[in-house]
């Protein structure tokens, strides 16, 4: 399936090259760098792998001269600011950025822009106006979870919210969306909230800690990476498994498939695909080629339903997260949609 995908990507590339002749400039001498602040979880590992795949193919096809990935040795904004400044010195034409902080890198990003470097931020975006932003509407993702619960549990009930890492923008946004959803569907009530730090083990401990104090739980709203741990905690406490919204991790999907086969368990899984790095690559390439690209782009999140579970599970390596790789035409579609 992957080969098929690559084939499609190459085809897209060729059409892209053909278009380049019409109104876009050639980018074959341009160099793009990826500035990444963290590589310590499955999502980031998949992201780096997708980038490498896309970059290798693009360099081989002569679309760009180089597309190197850099990860800071520590997940700190000051480290990444220095990394961006180094990239300016190294003479890259574009920097694709997954930022450690939405604001603390603005100084370095501005310096890059002033030096004529194109900066495209994704996932962890930056607020500096001269950069492009490929953002996920995390609030909408949180709200969609509650909307889905409303279709499945029209009677409503008590909800347990598992949050991410405290103080991180993504956590605030998803939680905001969830609370908006609960305000709209007032048959639900959030009776407990814990921080699972997007990790199964942390989530399991946190849920196990709060469970004894909670009434019957109808549904669990999560942020991804925490659903399996929550399920384990419910199981260990001997309580019935509620409807847990999952976050595309392989262990979550695996658990879901097992539950489905055993007792027909039904749920929804959604998260942002790590392949968004490849989308950012193509957006940067389009900007370098002289395409008019709006500064703010939105990437759809990857949703897995009961029907697509088997397919997603089969293509997700163990310990990883469901992924999709974006091609040039996907980038063009996103750009066109934002215009």
């Amino acid at each position: 399936m992957k080969r098929l995908f690559l084939g499609a990507a190459t085809l897209a590339l060729m059409t892209g090259a053909a278009q380049a002749g019409s109104h876009l400039q050639d980018t074959s001498d341009k160099r793009i760098a990826l500035s990444n602040n963290y590589a310590g979880n499955s999502w980031r590992q998949a992201m780096l792998a997708t980038w490498e795949e896309t970059a290798e193919q693009a360099v081989a096809d002569g679309v760009v001269a180089a597309a190197d990935a850099y990860t800071t040795s520590e997940n700190q904004a000051t480290e990444q600011a220095a990394q961006i400044q180094n990239m300016i010195l190294q003479g890259y034409d574009a920097i694709v950025l997954n930022a450690a902080s939405p604001t603390a890198l603005n100084g370095a990003v501005k310096e890059a822009c002033d030096a004529g470097v194109t900066v495209v931020s994704f996932d962890g975006i930056v607020t500096e106006p001269c950069a492009w932003r490929i953002a996920v509407d995390f609030a909408a993702m949180g709200k969609e979870e509650v909307d889905y619960l409303a279709t499945r549990l029209p009677e409503g009930g008590n909800l347990l919210e598992i949050r991410g890492l405290a103080g991180v923008f993504v956590d605030d946004e998803i939680s905001k969306g969830i609370h908006e959803g609960v305000a709209e569907h007032d048959q639900f009530e959030i009776v407990g909230s814990v921080h699972g730090d997007w990790a199964q083990d942390v989530a399991q401990k946190a849920v196990a800690g709060i469970l004894p104090s909670l009434p019957e739980i109808a549904g669990v709203v999560t942020q991804g990476g925490d659903g399996y741990g929550a399920a384990q905690a419910f199981d260990a406490a001997g309580r019935p498994t509620p409807l847990i919204v999952l976050g595309n991790r392989q262990d979550e999907l695996q658990w879901w498939a097992e539950q489905r086969d055993a007792n027909g368990y039904e749920t929804l899984s959604l998260s942002i695909a790590p392949g968004v790095a490849s989308l950012a690559f193509w957006v940067a390439q389009q900007v370098l080629a002289g395409e008019e690209v709006p500064k703010d782009l939105t990437v759809p999140f990857l949703k897995i339903t009961q029907d697509t579970l088997d397919e997603a599970l089969a293509s997700t390596p163990e310990g990883s997260v469901a992924n999709v790789s974006y091609a040039l035409e996907d980038a063009q579609e996103v750009i066109a949609a934002a215009k």
């Binding site: 700190q76 904004a77 604001t103 603005n106």
Partner: peptide, 17 residues
């Protein structure tokens, strides 16, 4: 000086210092 360079702040901005 750090804020003058980064233009804005973050509660974890200088933990490495």
């Amino acid at each position: 000086a750090l804020v003058g360079l980064t233009t804005s702040a973050d509660a974890n901005i200088a933990l490495r210092y």
